[in-house]
């Protein structure tokens, strides 16, 4: 899946945020020397191709009081892992949910789900809900709380590359 230079310019111009004006896509088009219809149709095409997941707001969950999180990890029977993983990922307190390879013998867990709550008790309550959902298909689990952010630069798209 690829994007061309014009797509890339549109993404680079909007990754810090859409302009908060009545016609934001026309504004972006003006910055780039394009017309509004082209900006809208290119964004729409990138949405359908999955390059853009969605155009939306990301709330700051810390500001809204959702300050606790833990990386829950689960050893789920491979035959059910995809079906159950999809159910876990759909829970509204789960922000990221992935199947990953185990690293035996150190690491028996294949399902990773990031749980969020207002405090650690809430996170543990969510963990119980996931455990109930997985039932007998889950052999063991753990949760890893973060104690420090050591680096966070995130993924930024360069305009040139």
């Amino acid at each position: 899946m690829s994007i061309d230079a014009t797509d890339r310019k549109i993404l680079a111009a909007t990754q810090a945020g859409l302009p908060l004006v009545a016609a934001p896509y026309a504004e972006v088009a003006g910055w780039l020397g394009l017309d509004e219809a082209e900006v809208i149709s290119r964004l729409d095409a990138m949405l359908s191709r999955g390059v853009i997941r969605r155009i939306a707001v990301a709330p700051n969950h810390y500001a809204l009081g959702v300050v606790a999180n833990g990386m829950s990890v689960w050893d789920v029977d491979d035959t059910h892992a995809e079906t159950l993983g999809a159910q876990v990922g759909a829970l509204d307190f789960v922000s990221h949910c992935y199947l990953r390879p185990r690293a035996l013998p150190d690491w028996p867990y294949n399902l990773f789900a990031m749980l969020h709550g207002t405090d650690r008790n809430a996170v543990e309550t969510h963990r119980t809900a996931v455990r109930d959902l997985l039932g007998d298909a889950c052999r063991s689990d753990d949760i890893l709380y973060s104690s420090r952010i050591l680096k966070k630069t995130g993924m930024r798209l360069s305009e040139g590359a």
Binding site: L20, V51, R54, A58
Partner: peptide, 15 residues
């Protein structure tokens, strides 16, 4: 600071 981002969210792997 109630919003951290407002705009397109990219699937970096898709790119």
């Amino acid at each position: 600071g109630a919003i951290t981002r407002f705009g397109p969210f990219l699937d970096a792997a898709a790119m």
